[in-house]
């Protein structure tokens, strides 16, 4: 900001003065707005979980079988990667707030790196599944041919690719806005005293993590008790 914003003063009948909240420089407003945005994400993923639950109750065993065939090791590693990225993001914000801009930038870069690792592992996972013939559009997930999986598994994998795909899309967006944040920091627009953008992007990143906290068990773990599935694979 080139010139400081000075809030207006309203005067009541007794002559008392009240500060007027303008849209400029409204940190709490920025935070509130971003939380509201996150609620829309909650509703969106909530609706997808609703679909998932609906079909889970309809095709219980199919879901468990399909889940058992996912690669829990890679999924677990990704969970830990995301956990650490949430930490680096949080520490970055903390450093920004306490005035250590350089440290903050370092932490953001670390987060970006971890995000890329996450996507890399995801790619490995999807490729392996593709080679097993399980991917959107492949015959196993279409109806009425000799490779067709049962209904429940088709639905499970349909949702699996949709939801992890959408989650991955959020990660990509996250990388984008983190790069943008770095640019804003370099330009001096985000400073220890004016860091709402950093704050909100950290919130976004935590939300992406939060979604994974539910996506992961719902897809990877519900079939984990099915030892046969683990041993035989699919």
């Amino acid at each position: 900001m080139s010139h400081e914003y000075v809030p207006e003063i309203a005067v009541d009948r007794e002559g008392k003065e009240h500060e007027v909240q303008g849209w400029q420089d409204d940190t709490y407003g920025g935070k509130l707005g971003f939380w509201l945005f996150m609620f829309t994400e909650v509703m969106m993923f909530g609706a997808m979980f609703l679909i998932l639950t609906y079909y889970f109750s309809l095709h219980h065993q199919d879901f468990i079988n399909a889940s058992a065939s996912l690669n829990r090791v890679l999924g677990g590693v990704n969970t830990v990667v995301l956990l650490f990225s949430a930490l680096t993001m949080g520490l970055g914000l903390l450093k920004m707030r306490s005035g250590d801009v350089k440290g903050a930038k370092l932490m953001i870069w670390a987060t970006i790196l971890l995000a890329i690792v996450f996507l890399g592992i995801k790619a490995v996972e999807w490729t392996a599944e593709y080679q097993h013939g399980v991917f959107l559009g492949l015959e196993a997930l279409q109806a009425g041919n000799e490779f067709s999986k049962p209904f429940g598994e088709i639905l499970f994998f349909g949702m699996y690719f949709t939801m992890t795909g959408l989650h991955g899309f959020h990660i990509i967006i996250g990388i984008g806005i983190m790069l943008w944040l770095l640019k804003r920091i370099n330009a001096g627009k985000v400073t220890p005293h004016h860091h709402i953008l950093h704050f909100n992007i950290a919130l976004y990143w935590d939300l992406v993590h939060l979604i994974w906290v539910f996506v992961f068990p719902y897809f990877y773990m519900i079939g984990a008790g099915d030892i046969a599935g683990v041993v035989n694979g699919h």
Binding site: A86, D206, H209, L210, V213, F214, F216, P217, Y218, M221, I222
Partner: peptide, 14 residues
């Protein structure tokens, strides 16, 4: 059980 663990994690993150 998985969902309960997830909920606890989510609560901590939030």
């Amino acid at each position: 059980a998985q969902l309960i663990i997830g909920a606890i994690k989510a609560w901590m993150i939030l």
